[in-house]
Structure formats: C-alpha cells, structure tokens
Design a protein around this nucleic acid. Sequence first.
DNA 1: AAAATATAACTAATAACATTAGTTTTCCTG
DNA 2: CAGGAAAACTAATGTTATTAGTTATATTTT
Lengths: 189, 189
Amino acid sequence: MSPRVGLGSNKIVMAAAEIADEQGMEGVTLAALAARLGVRPPSLYNHIDGLAGLRTQLAVHGLKQLYEAMSSASQGLSGSDAVLAMGKGYAAFAKQHPGLYEMTLQAPDADNAELIEEGDRVLKLITCVLEPYRLGEQGELHAVRGLRSILHGFASLEQKGGFSISLDLNVSLSATIHAFLAGIDQFRE
Amino acid sequence: MSPRVGLGSNKIVMAAAEIADEQGMEGVTLAALAARLGVRPPSLYNHIDGLAGLRTQLAVHGLKQLYEAMSSASQGLSGSDAVLAMGKGYAAFAKQHPGLYEMTLQAPDADNAELIEEGDRVLKLITCVLEPYRLGEQGELHAVRGLRSILHGFASLEQKGGFSISLDLNVSLSATIHAFLAGIDQFRE
DNA sequence: AAAATATAACTAATAACATTAGTTTTCCTG
DNA sequence: CAGGAAAACTAATGTTATTAGTTATATTTT
C-alpha cells in the first residue's frame, strides 16, 4: 500500500464533516472515517486526539462555518433586515450541514479554548445585530439569549422532524423573529 | 442466583430514565442498565426491542412527563399567564430531567405511533394556550412553531451550557415569551 | 399434586468499535 | 548517503450490542 498518505488534521476534519452531514453525527466513527481516507483506524491517532478530540475539532469547524453563514447573510444590512437575514442564514446553514450543526452543540469538551472562542464570536455577532435596539447591558444579554434560542430551536426542531406539517418553514421563522422584534421593548430596562 | 427477577418493560424504562438523567443519554447502555437491574444484558431482550426500542420507549415516556409538567403548570390560567407558566413548566422539566428531555427529540424511530401521538398531545397543548389570541388557522400553526422553538431552544441551550454568563435564566425566558406575545400580531392573518 | 408449557433468565459466541503498544516504512535532514 | 522523526502499519484488548441455544422457574392444566 502507500504509507505517508498525507493526512493531516485538516483533511481528517473535512472528511469527518462530510460523513456527519451525510449520515448524521453518529455516523462519524473512526472506523468509517479511516475507511474513507484509505487508512487504518489507529493511524488517525497520529493527527487527532481520539474520537473525543475529533468531535471537538468538528464543533469548532462547525462554529466557524456557522459564523460565516450568519455574517455574510447579514452583511450590509441593519435593523430588522439584518436580524432576519442573520436568522435565515443560521437556518440555512443548519439545513445544509445538519451533522456539522448538530456537532456544534454536542462537543465533548466544552472547556476547550478554541471552542469557547468560536462560540463567543457567534454570540458577539448576535449581540451586534441587536445593538441598534439599545436595550441596555442586561436587557441585551437577555435578548441575545432569546434570539439565539429561537434560532437554535427552529434549526433543531426542523432537523429532528418536529415540524411535520407541510407549511413553509421560512414563513414561520420570519414571523417569529418579527414578533420577537415587535415586542423587544420587553427587554429594555 | 435468582432467576425470574421480575423485570418488565416498565421497570426497565424507569431505570433507564434514571441513568439518562444522571449521566446523560449516552450513559444509557444495555450493559449499564442490566448491571443496575442485577441482570445480564441479553435478558433485557425479553422485554425490550434492543437499544433502539428502549430509546423509543424512553422518548415516549419523556414526552408524557413533559406533557404533565406543561399541563399542570398552566392549569387554571389563561392568556399570557398560561403561556408563561407553560413555558416555565417546560423549562423546569428539561432542567430536572435532562437526559429524559434530550431523549424526547432523539428517538431512533420517528415513525413510532405512540411517539407521534405523544408529540401531538404536546403540540395540542401549545395550540390550546395560543387559542385565545385568535390567529387564524395558518397563523396559529406558525405561532405554535415559534413558541415551541423558543421553549426547546432555551431548554437545549441551557442543557448544553450555552448560557455561560450568570444571569437568571427565568428572566431571559420570561422576557422572550413576553416579547413573542407582545408581537404576536405578526402571526395574525 | 404432578406434569406440561410458556416465559424469563442464563451462557456462549460474534461483530463493530475505540484505543494502546509495539513495529515497520518512508520522508526529510544533516 | 546515513540517521532520525514522523506516519503508517499489525496485533491485541476491552467495551458494547446482539443472536443462538440452554436451563431454570412460574404458571397452568390435567
């Protein structure tokens, strides 16, 4: 065979992300991953810190992609337009990358520094888009939680098939965000 | 030893629910479950349909408990009081039974009849509490999705440690629900 | 009360997986 | 061109779920 296949942490995470999106988070096994990469499972340990380490790296990678999706979607917009666009970007990413999105919240090592940093970036992005509403320090924190809950709730429920009825999901999400913004005075202190 | 330990599907699911809440969903292995029940793993197959079947039963059980929590919390109330109380009941259940709650959305067999039925009961409960707002057929469906997303989003993010800052979660949830209700005109058609 | 039956436990065995230890091969460097 | 670091390998172990086949027990029937 061919030793020195030329792996590296990057290629491994990319391949793992593909598997995650194709088969879900549970499909990401070192056995399946090694098979896809044309390598034996133990070889992966030269590049990643076991399955747990891989999952953490996947979560970080997912958060980066999520940030990109949200950021580029809301680029150049402001006010409710920005919030709505960001929400749609969030939902679109979760739909397009179900496994990767799932992994962003299932990291085994929640204390990982890079993971925390990427999570903070996403939070900051949400904070930014709510900034114009001038809610005050505390109010803003509560509102960020609320908006993030809406976004994650929609993404997660769509993924789990919680929305069985054939009714446009984008409409539901848009209306919910609009309702949230229409009542955002509740957060102002 | 003691043959005829006297298991039964009920005892098994209860024990599994305990493990789930103590160690999370992943701790629910047939090995751990059998050990707790003083039995060998294969014996469980006389009562449950493998790990997948057990998980489905756990999900059903969790949904029943969730329904109870939501129902009893909002009992006798109406309007925004009812919505808020139901939301708090939802969050409290998810906090008290993290593993069981997690399982309600991770059922392996989403087509299971009982699972669908229990899920529908929960949805109907949410529908009922939004009834007074007279949103119309479509609007009501969208609003139910929105409220459910808020509730699940909060529960899920709290569980995953997504709310790191020490800021009262109940306040965040209350304000978000109030904002949602304040802007609920968005759903009216 | 004794025999027959159904059921629930068991042991044994297999397959998939993660992981560790130790070995060989290859690439790069000096 | 030789030597060493790194990356692949094989072999082996432990955990898990699951199936097959066996034994023991409780219940039912005669």
